[in-house]
Structure formats: structure tokens, C-alpha cells
Nucleic acid binder design. Structure first.
Lengths: 230, 230
DNA sequence: GGTCGTCAAGAGCAGTGCTCTCGTTTTTTG
DNA sequence: CAAAAAACGAGAGCACTGCTCTTGACGACC
């Protein structure tokens, strides 16, 4: 098909990519609020209205950036998990945690788009949920694998019955794992992103300097909460 | 001296308060990005430029709202801690955690101002740090009290030496507490705000319904991490 | 070759933060 | 008490934003 038809489509794809690239660079320097269609157009030597041929609104451009960011983060976590020996669960956990933190610190504004305060008026469309699940899916698989391998401290005390029904939406992320362990995983997960939020959003400025070292200790505590044998 | 001079100053204080009130209401409905000086002026029946007599810039208005929010949150946590028996540390911990979560859920946009992605270009001035420390100070006092009362599981294993120097900026928040316990406290603290971030920013939508119940379980796990005897 | 769809450009609308000026009113000073 | 000074609200205006609509040109298809 058709060099001729593709002639147009190719330049269109190229321009679309150029727009997102410039937008991403602008996002990195100005933040989500400072992302301006007009500025992107200016940098491309276009007039502002022309951008709307490629992205019908500012939100659509934002959505594209969000999906890209989710995929970038997810890929980083997947890779960090993949390079570890599959049965070394503490190491897999630490590796995944560091991947999240490293990516977030390297791309603070993009991270803010994913896990920061939602942009007012912006509603994430369905397209994002697939890419959005990649990082948490890694964590779920990790817990599932560890449980199956008998590497997780077994449940101790009874759970309150109200918790059972609440686990429904999470169970398929870590199949086979008992609820008690599941909630321990959620706890570690919130601790991970809680830290990263604090760090990326500047809450540790002038307080904690060597954040990587402290982070590592935090995630070791989280691993203990999960019950991953060391 | 006061009557005559205060005539003007009183109406000025009144108007200032009215501006922040309207701004806060606008913040609650539109979010930080939707806070518009012109809209505030319109609602007051003033012309937009008149607002600048009271707040030299939009950021200054934002700062006022941030300080108010920090104080509101801090006060809520302080009160929640104060109503508990002083030697019932697990209960004090849970009470403080619920206070943070309740306030955040009730005032999501104001919470986002405090703990969400920073507003681009906005730099929090020094005025905020005092109000900002109120909530975390409660937590620090709680840990300090619990340690002094012997209600915290003592340190087990040795800490890595790099961690020692990093604790400097936090020690005065919980005087007398050994570093191991201090870091456990930080871990629980990040778990708390990590959860609240996720909940307020909508990460649990369509996933966890009865968030209060799960939150309570999470904070119990965090208490176990701290080592508060149950 | 003619038709149709795609495209960039430009003007324009409503909104924003912010600045400056201009009378008016209130407070302070002489 | 009157004059000088400070504070104030109103208005116009600047540069910017997202977005819409129209116009004219170019390339692709029948």
C-alpha cells in the first residue's frame, strides 16, 4: 500500500511525534500547567490552529503524554524486574522499587502527571488504563511468584471480614495469594509511592540528603511488612 | 488610636478575609489551577485590579490559602491526638491517621495544595514552614512519648552507618528516639500519606470501595512496622 | 482533468495575570 | 482646622492562553 497514501500519512505521523516530543520537553521544564499549545506551535514554526489538526484539544495532547509516561515507567519497572534472578524475591522487590524511584526522580513532571494531583477538569480516558497497569502488574506478579514459591511469611492472624469483599478488585493482580498477604502487598505499594511522592514533590528538601540510602532502608522495611524472607 | 486608624484597617481585614473565603470556595470547586483572581473580584463586585491592593499576586493569595490549609490540617490532627488517653499509643496513632485522612477526603483540593504536585512556578515562602510542621509534629511527639513509655519494640538489628547522618534533620521532631525507631516512624508516615495521596487523587476509584476499612487495616500494619505494642 | 479531502494560515472570541493611570476618599501631618 | 500623603476602586490596556471559524492552496483519488 501505497507510497502515495503513505506519503501524507507518514508526514502526519512524523509531525504528530514531533508535537509530542516538543510537548514533552515543555512539560519537563514548565510542568503540566505550563504546557501551551501555542508555544508548541511556535517552536514548530506553525500557527497555533494547525496543531488542532493533530490533537483536537489540549487534553488530548495531555492524554498522549500520559500514556507515554505510563508506558515508560511500566517498561522501566518491567526491565528492572526481568534482570533479576526470578527466585530472588527480595532482590526483585528492591530492583522494582528503585526503578520506580529512579524514573520518577529523572522525570518529575511526567511522574506528577501520573501520580500527582489530577489536572483540574481533566478526566483520564479509558485508553490510559492499560498502560497504567504495567508497573503495578509487575508488583503483583512478584508477590504471586513469591507466594507460590513459599518465600512469603504465611498469614498470622485472622482478617476482619469486611476486608474480604474489598480485595475483589485486586485479587486478579496477584492470583493465588491469600488476602492477608495481598493487603501487606498493598501496604508496601503505598509506602513505595508515598515515599516517591514526598521525594519528587520536594517534601524532603533540606531534611534528607542521601535519599537513595534512606529509600533503600524504607523499602527494606516494606519488604519486611510483606514478609519476604531475607 | 485604634478607632480612627482601625476604621480603614478593619474594612481592609474584612475584605482580605472575604477574598480568601471566596478563593477557598473557588479552590474547592475548581482546583488550584482554576483559581482566578478575576472571578474572585467578580464575585465581590469589584474590578480585578482592586484585588491587587490586597494580594500583590496570585501566588500570594495561594500562599495565604496554603497556610490556612496547613493550619486546618494541623489543628485537626492535634485535636485527634489530644482526645485520646495519652498512654494509649496505638489509639493515638490510629486517631491521628484518621484525622489526616478525614481532613484530606473532606478537602481534596486543599490537600492537593499541600501534598500534591507543586504548582509550577510557585515557590512556597518561609512563612509556610511553621504551619506546615504541625501535623508531622504530632506524629513525632507521639513516637517520642511512646518510646519514653517503653511502648515501642526496641531496635533489633544494626543500622547501616550511612543512615546515621541522614537522621539529623528529623531527630528534633522526636527527641530521645533511637535511629532505628525513627526510621520506622518515617516509614509509617510515608505509608500514611502514600495511602491518602492515592485515595484523594483517585487511584482507588473502581478498585477499593470501603476505603476507610482498608485504610484502618493499612495503618494497623504501619503501627506494627513502628513496633507499637498492641 | 476535475473533484474532494486535507492542510496551514489568519482573524477573532472569551478568558487569564498583571500594570499603569486617574480621580476619590480616608488618614496623617503641619 | 486645613494641607499634604497615603490608600483605594475603577478603567484601560498588554501579553498571553485554549479554541473556533473561514479562506485559500495543495495533494490524492475517480
Amino acid at each position: 500500500m501505497t507510497a502515495s497514501r503513505t506519503a501524507r500519512e507518514r508526514v502526519r505521523a512524523e509531525l504528530t511525534r514531533e508535537i509530542t516530543d516538543i510537548a514533552r520537553r515543555q512539560l519537563a521544564t514548565e510542568g503540566a500547567g505550563g504546557l501551551s499549545l501555542r508555544a508548541v506551535a511556535r517552536e514548530m514554526g506553525m500557527v497555533s490552529s494547525a496543531i488542532y489538526r493533530y490533537f483536537p484539544s489540549r487534553d488530548d495532547l495531555l492524554t498522549a503524554l500520559i500514556i507515554d509516561a505510563y508506558n515508560a515507567l511500566g517498561e522501566a519497572v518491567e526491565r528492572a524486574d526481568a534482570v533479576c534472578p526470578q527466585d530472588d524475591f527480595p532482590r526483585r522487590w528492591m530492583s522494582a522499587c528503585h526503578a520506580v524511584r529512579d524514573w520518577a526522580v529523572a522525570h518529575p513532571h511526567e511522574y506528577a502527571l501520573l501520580y500527582g494531583s489530577p489536572v483540574p477538569g481533566y478526566q483520564a480516558p479509558q485508553d490510559t488504563i492499560e498502560a497504567r497497569m504495567r508497573d503495578v502488574a509487575v508488583m503483583g506478579r512478584l508477590l504471586s511468584d513469591a507466594w507460590r514459591a513459599g518465600a512469603i511469611r504465611p498469614p498470622a492472624d485472622e482478617l476482619s471480614p469486611e476486608l474480604e469483599s474489598e480485595a475483589a478488585g485486586i485479587r486478579d493482580l496477584m492470583p493465588g495469594v491469600p488476602d492477608d498477604v495481598l493487603w501487606r502487598g498493598v501496604s508496601a505499594w503505598t509506602a513505595l509511592y508515598g515515599w516517591v511522592n514526598f521525594e519528587v514533590f520536594g517534601q524532603f528538601n533540606n531534611t534528607i540528603e542521601d535519599r537513595r540510602t534512606v529509600f533503600e532502608h524504607m523499602m527494606r522495611l516494606a519488604a519486611a511488612t510483606i514478609g519476604i524472607a531475607r
